[in-house]
């Protein structure tokens, strides 16, 4: 495993403890998850106990200790989206992909998660796929988007 980027990331925040979460986000953006070895380096450099780091990583929902799928599907857990029928979309997603929120499909293609209100309530129910927002979703539209991604053989984002 290449640990070189870690020094750079920590350096960018001057190794400050107040930047721990930002550092972890940057690390996860780079490696697509938080490898144990990297976290041990962070613990040593920031002089924070490994128990604390492990507690932080397992506490906050954004972090993943296992590699995430190629496509990330995020459903908004907000009230407005719920009232507009988000529950059905979530049921369809879990059935279609055969995974629960927080998990990744076995072929590592899709990661599903629910997130607490994305803040775009006016266009709910909202689905975020690979950084792109889709508004006014229903189970049918959501299914179509996933199916299109699934058959996209080329690399990169949809």
């Amino acid at each position: 495993m290449d640990y070189k980027p870690v020094e750079g990331i920590i350096g960018r925040y001057q190794g400050k403890r107040t930047a721990l979460i930002s550092i972890l986000h940057d690390i996860q953006d780079h490696y697509h998850y938080l490898p144990e070895g990297v976290l041990k380096k962070v613990s040593a450099r920031l002089e924070m106990g490994l128990s604390n780091i492990y507690g932080v990583v397992t506490f906050y929902k954004s972090f993943s200790l296992v590699p995430k799928g190629k496509h990330s599907i995020t459903l908004c857990l907000g009230t407005a989206c719920h009232v507009q029928g988000r529950g059905k979309i979530l049921r369809e997603m879990t059935k279609l992909l055969n995974i629960e929120p927080g998990e990744t499909t076995r072929d590592k293609k899709f990661s599903l998660q629910v997130v607490n209100c994305l803040g775009v309530c006016a266009i709910g129910p909202v689905m975020l796929v690979d950084g792109r927002y889709y508004g006014e979703m229903n189970s049918l539209k959501a299914k179509r988007i996933i199916q299109k991604l699934g058959t996209n053989k080329g690399g990169g984002k949809a």
Binding site: L50, Y54, G55, T58
Partner: peptide
């Protein structure tokens, strides 16, 4: 001992060793 800590949160909170 610096060995034990809480991991997870809410109903999935548990006592754990790091990793």
């Amino acid at each position: 001992g610096r060995a034990l800590g809480f991991a997870g949160r809410g109903v999935t909170k548990r006592v754990s060793l790091p990793f």
